[in-house]
């Protein structure tokens, strides 16, 4: 994969969440994702981008086109330098919420994509990486 396939969107304000959704939708459309695939990917991105802004104190989203043989997909990486999560397993469970959400953000986002990785260190930040293949 070459560098031109990667770009970032800053995630500082709540309005940036909207920009992130639009960037992800555009990329999904360029790759020829179906409407359902687009909607799932954009919705997962929306959940994670909001987490970065509200729980992570801001950060950024990196968008990449990934290839596996003839298959293409998108990889989205959300990174912040916020307080991190002491218990990832708990944070990943349905209904768990640290804030004012429904507690479906992380666990729900995972169900909407093909690949989901999360790393978090208390006091250092959180990185979530997702991929959806066409």
């Amino acid at each position: 994969m070459d560098a031109s396939d990667s770009r970032t969107v800053k995630l500082t304000t709540e309005q940036d969440v909207v920009s992130a959704r639009q960037a992800v939708r555009q990329l999904c459309q360029e790759l020829g994702f179906s409407l359902v695939e687009q909607t799932k990917t954009v919705t997962a991105a929306s959940e994670l981008a909001r987490n970065t802004v509200t729980h992570g104190g801001g950060g950024e989203m990196r968008l990449q086109v990934v290839r596996n043989g003839t298959r293409r997909g998108v990889r989205l990486t959300f990174e912040d330098r916020g307080p991190g999560m002491p218990d990832i397993e708990k944070a990943m469970s349905d209904g768990w919420s640290s804030g004012d959400g429904l507690g479906m953000g992380l666990s729900g986002a995972r169900r909407l994509v093909n690949e989901f990785e999360i790393e978090s260190q208390p006091g250092e930040g959180t990185r979530v990486s997702i991929a959806r293949w066409k």
Binding site: V36, Q38, L102, M104, R111
Partner: peptide, 12 residues
């Protein structure tokens, strides 16, 4: 429909 499908998978 795409929104409905996504909502249910999201768990809402």
């Amino acid at each position: 429909p795409a929104v409905a499908i996504t909502l249910v998978e999201l768990g809402l």
